[in-house]
Amino acid sequence: MSAESATLPVGTIVHGHGAESSHGSHHGSGHGHDPNVAHQFDDAAQQHESVLLGMWSFLATEVLFFGGLFCAYLVYRTTSPLAFTLASQHLNVILGAVNTGVLLVSSLFIALAVRESQLGNGKRVNLYLLGTILLGAVFLLIKGYEWTTDYHEGLIPFAKNFQIPEHNLDEMAHNATPAGRFKLFWVLYFFMTGLHGIHVIIGLVMFGIVMYVVKKRTQTGKSYSNLVEVTGLYWHFVDIVWVFLYPLMYLIHPITGGGGHH
């Protein structure tokens, strides 16, 4: 680096040539060429790339956030597979599959909403978003139904009526598996599906806001495609989390016919 650079003048700055000299006003607001571009960005392309990367960084954080819980799951399942198998058999495979389908359809809707936003069809964007919100609500309703059933079966570890079913206790005792691990499955199940549910709710609220913004901006002719694209990324991520949660929670040696009733 040194030999050639010594010949160059130190700290050379070539100043704004032509097109960029308009940036030079005092309060950073002089580059008002495009009302869709925030003042810190030079142009729409830079803004687009930045907001996308921002969301991708956030999703990387989210992967590790859920990852900590997957780590706990992995450790406890690896060290006591029997307890996890027995506990998992109390979940309803069909309802879980239906919910996976519901989220996959919603992901399709979002993908189509992004497409329409790129094409500038605000009305269709909002139609797809509305569809997603409804599907998200269906997902939550099904989840709520499952959780209620779990409560009646005494499977919510945070509730007073939690009780490990007798036959599960016997089987674990036979195989020298600590019964606490059965409870830990349910702790992780509710923690992870609960956290996932919170993400779904946040997503629905967000889409509600996005719908409002899209409607406003369709009238004023401002751009909204970045917003739809970024919130869409978030929603696909929420879907991906569930894609892993479903087999890990519901499909450990499932029993035909769904929930194990007693």
């Binding site: 704004g16 040539h17 940036h23």
Partner: peptide, 9 residues
């Protein structure tokens, strides 16, 4: 005052 352009190491 204007976006700098960097030409040196």
């Amino acid at each position: 005052a204007s976006t700098p352009v960097i030409t040196t190491e």
